[in-house]
Design a binder for these strands. Sequence first.
DNA 1: GAACCATATAACCATATTGTTATTTATATA
DNA 2: TATATAAATAACAATATGGTTATATGGTTC
Lengths: 109, 109
Amino acid sequence: MTMEFEKLADILKALADPTRLKILSLLRIRDCCVCELVPIFNISQPAISKHVSRLKTAELVRETRKGQWVFYSINEKRLEEIGYALSHLPDLSEELRKLEQQGLTVTCE
Amino acid sequence: MTMEFEKLADILKALADPTRLKILSLLRIRDCCVCELVPIFNISQPAISKHVSRLKTAELVRETRKGQWVFYSINEKRLEEIGYALSHLPDLSEELRKLEQQGLTVTCE
DNA sequence: GAACCATATAACCATATTGTTATTTATATA
DNA sequence: TATATAAATAACAATATGGTTATATGGTTC
């Protein structure tokens, strides 16, 4: 199954930040709560909170409340989906065929 | 080999746009020049030019001038690298160990 | 050389992103 | 109930992104 460009771009945007990539790396080792992540980074608690929220919206992580803490876990399946989607982008042969029919293709040599 | 978070994030940012993903899909079928890409999208020639330039900076495409045209081709290797990097993010066990030593880990239940 | 076509760059604008501090909400505990 | 801690949200600022139109650059052809 191919993934729509807009949807794939949205998930890639969620991934495309060094802080969020580092958070995912940490979650790959074990689930963490926000207060554990904060001292690892040089940014504020609300900044971390917004980053994990962004990851959650993209379904790259899941949250579980445990008492006063909210633990985040990685969604490995979602990450695999991205790798798959990148190697199976939608087939646009039709677009190029239309271009040819309109005489807009460039042939040289 | 793992990829630095900043570098990986930069390449993912180059990928994280529906127009650029669609351009990559088209290039997967065959090399295209800018003037072929323009009529496929609803945006101006300079906009397309900037998108391919962004992809080139991230080494996701390569350019070859042929007469007055500049043909762009996909760099499949780079795309494979991204998939690999996502499944082999840097190991941050050390960071979590430091956290433990500082008594900042949260244990509940 | 002049005119033409393809592409890149410049200057600009609207919106998105990523951080901040202050405050609110949720839960645990004295 | 009052207080403390964890996390989320609000309001804001600086910068990045993605588009525009106008112009410059590179190459071809008359």
